[in-house]
């Protein structure tokens, strides 16, 4: 497949909380014909600032151009791309499995334990299992549970990531920009 010559990159984007930005960001991928593998949008640790975690297969040249084109959008504060060794990554899988089957098949709860997953809800009809980790870990549990034909629903979240760097680029950026603004207002 074409993905083999490509690397999985994670782009972290910080933006103002304004309508329509997600559209603009995804449009950059579409124009460059790059498929988004996963996408997560949520609040960040900074009030009023949204964080996007986007993964895609690409080469470095393309991902660099994509990142700069995203950063060019007016209300995007910062966009950076990372490879897996530069970030801590988590995903979450949710499983709805049949309680009667689980009670009949000992192997099911063994697999849940082996995979370090949690059962968060049980009723006579179904149980809910959650598993956080990397894609492989979650998919491995899914494959194991599938053997028992007990899965009623399965969903895996997009990746979320935190950088390993000792510097907090987004806070630095905001401080720099605010300092610049102070200087600007003083000049005028």
């Amino acid at each position: 497949m074409e993905q083999e010559s490509k690397t999985l990159y994670t782009i972290l984007v910080f933006s103002e909380n304004l309508a329509g930005l997600l559209n603009q960001i995804t449009a950059v991928f579409t124009r460059r014909q790059v498929n988004i593998e996963s996408l997560n949008v949520s609040a960040s640790s900074i009030k009023g600032i949204h964080k996007y975690t986007i993964t895609c297969y690409s080469d470095e040249e393309t991902i660099d151009k994509i990142t700069r084109q995203i950063e060019k959008k007016i209300d995007v504060l910062q966009a950076n791309y990372y490879t897996d060794d530069e970030i801590f990554i988590q995903e979450c899988g949710l499983f709805k499995i049949s309680t009667p089957t689980m009670l009949n098949e000992k192997g099911i709860s063994r697999q849940i334990r082996l995979h370090d997953a949690n059962i968060v809800e049980v009723n006579p009809t179904y149980a809910i299992v959650t598993k956080t980790g990397l894609t492989e870990d979650i998919e491995s549990l899914y494959a194991a549970l599938q053997e028992f034909k007990c899965v009623l629903q399965y969903v895996r979240s997009g990746r979320i990531a935190i950088t390993k760097s000792r510097r907090e680029h987004i806070s630095d950026y905001i401080n720099e920009r605010e300092e610049k603004h102070r200087q600007l207002t003083m000049e005028n």
Binding site: E16, I74, D75, V76, K180, L184
Partner: peptide, 8 residues
């Protein structure tokens, strides 16, 4: 307006 935080 002569300043937008996300726009350089």
């Amino acid at each position: 307006i002569d300043f937008i935080r996300g726009y350089v």
